[in-house]
């Protein structure tokens, strides 16, 4: 049975959605994520294991290769899509609580800023790692960030800023979050930021790499079941 989960992980890693997927060429005609997840469910493998040891495991491998600069972002996205195809099949099991995600993470580009390409990448990595992601979009005011973190009982908030001037709004959001929701981890990123800036504004974590944020969250938040 382990073997089946390892095959699911491999298909996620290679971005192989189904038998019909024309790529990758060396896997032409072989089963993809959707067929293998169906097979796993039919063999009564617990959905939580399919998620954790199949889908998420595949994303972990690809995320690590990205962190080590071995691959480019498009390849991670192809894997994320393959993972999604499997996730869709597991959706019914969320209702009966047969599967739970790691928790909720809020992502947002801070007030006064519109640059969201990096924020979207971070959101995609988080989903791939088994987090429920609530994306608040761009130009998000500190009070909206706080109220959503409360509403969704978030484990963490990921803030992005690319404009030097909006880095100040980031500081406000971090302060408000720490004051109102001290349990919630606040992660910050965006090209002009630095470790020293993140430290000065009291953020819990800074990195240029979304994958490192995942590792940090896995080690520093209290996962539910996964």
């Amino acid at each position: 049975m382990e073997d089946l989960l390892a095959r699911i992980a491999r298909c996620v890693e290679r971005g192989k959605i189904s038998t019909l997927s024309p790529f990758p060429k060396d896997m032409l005609g072989t089963a993809g994520v959707t067929e293998l997840v169906a097979e796993a469910l039919a063999s009564s493998i617990p959905p939580q294991n399919i998620l954790r040891k199949g889908l998420i495991a595949g994303m972990e491998t690809i995320g690590e290769r990205f962190r080590l600069n071995k691959i480019f972002i498009p390849e991670v996205m192809i894997s994320a899509k393959a993972m999604n195809s499997g996730m869709r099949m597991l959706l019914p099991f969320f209702e009966g609580n047969k599967i739970t995600l790691k928790g909720t993470v809020i992502v947002a580009t801070v007030q006064g800023d519109l640059h969201d390409i990096g924020k979207n990448i971070v959101g995609m990595f988080l989903k791939g790692a088994g987090w429920n992601v609530v994306d608040l979009g761009v130009n998000v005011a500190p009070e909206v960030i706080v109220s959503n973190a409360r509403l969704h009982n978030a484990a963490a908030v990921c803030l992005s800023a690319l404009l030097t001037t909006t880095m100040l709004n980031m500081e406000q959001a971090v302060m408000d979050l720490h004051k109102e929701l001290p349990r919630v981890k606040v992660l910050v990123g965006g090209a002009p930021l630095s470790h020293s800036f993140a430290e000065r504004i009291g953020a819990d974590f800074f990195s240029t790499s979304p994958q490192e944020a995942i590792i940090y969250l896995d080690e520093n938040s209290t996962p539910e079941t996964v």
Binding site: I73, P74, M77, I78, A80, K81, N84, D116, I117, N120, I121, M124, D135
Partner: peptide
């Protein structure tokens, strides 16, 4: 595209439009 889980296409559309 992003909401539909079409990350690669969403990302390409974003960087091309930019």
């Amino acid at each position: 595209l992003m909401a539909a889980g079409e990350y690669l296409h969403g990302y390409f559309a974003d960087i091309i439009a930019s």
